[in-house]
Design a protein around this nucleic acid. Sequence first.
RNA 1: GGCUCUGUAGCUCAGUUGGUAGAGCAACGGACUGAAAAUCCGUGUGUCAGCGGUUCAACCCCGCUUGGAGCCA
Length: 302
Amino acid sequence: MSILGAILGATGSGKTELAILLAQKLGAEIICMDSRQLYKGFRIGTAQPTAEELSAVPHHLVDFLPPERQYNAAEFAKGVKDLLAQKPSAKFILVGGTGLYMQALCQGLNPLPPVNPEIRERLKKHYENKEQKELYSDALKADPSIEGKIKQGDTQRLLRILELSTLNSQLSTPPNSQLKRVGGIGSVPSVWLDFPRDELYKRINERVVKMQKSGWVEEVAGLSKTVPANAPAWQSLGYLELKTALEKNEDPLSITEGVALRTRHYAKRQITWFKHKENPICIDGKTAKSKETIERISHSFQ
RNA sequence: GGCUCUGUAGCUCAGUUGGUAGAGCAACGGACUGAAAAUCCGUGUGUCAGCGGUUCAACCCCGCUUGGAGCCA
């Protein structure tokens, strides 16, 4: 097994910097486990590693995906496994905050057919102007095991269930409820970069401002010219707000507070996920880059 | 100086013909199996500006004090 461990933490907790120090010390390469940093050209707003950082240590799965491409947890897991197979003697460190991707990689996924965009689109259209209840009752019929697990308002998951049931009946695979996870590489040692809540929020607020000062606006202006408006990459926090502000000729700084707010909400979701799904060693974010801490983490990664 | 409006949750504000109060946002907690920076779910945290009066009972009515806003001088 060539994955030494994972650096986890909420957005803005300083994972990137720590990972580089650690990778240099351990002679490892970095795998970005981030559903947004993988989009090509979406650099500043997603806090991709800088050019300097990228050249300091070999990085994978970052800044490579065409913005109009949809990606998913299964592709990520496959991408990592392919990489491990290609470089059997290399050592890797996982770095990122996308919990679902880590789960898919380590624990595996149900052996289901790949996402089918046509069916998904059709279902979406079909339920667009209907009552929420109808979507729920149809999904419940398709897979009774979702009762109590998926809520009525959770459009995204309900559509997924219906998409699966459509595929299942076409491909006669077993119903969702009976499937088991397969293909996981098993759990890896992980550390969580911890901050008191108010400090983390302060870091997030400041980072949004910093992004705007360091070329994010120009980045979005450029991307707007080449990337179609419906490209999945635009879903990255703040990009759509910024793009719209530019189109409407509004002050790009008017979005700052809203973006910071949504980023804080996102950070909270990450905290909840990793606290409950993974069992990382908690380290103090403030002293994470100290010699002692690096030493300690290296040790647990061996 | 005079007149009018105003003070209720962290913020913006509802409200009770008098029976100690509730929305949105924030905040906090939670879920998560191929969109996850996504998508959802739950929780009210309060000297109702202060002091006194009327009343069985005041956030509500009355008086004074105090903070804020506006108009007239």
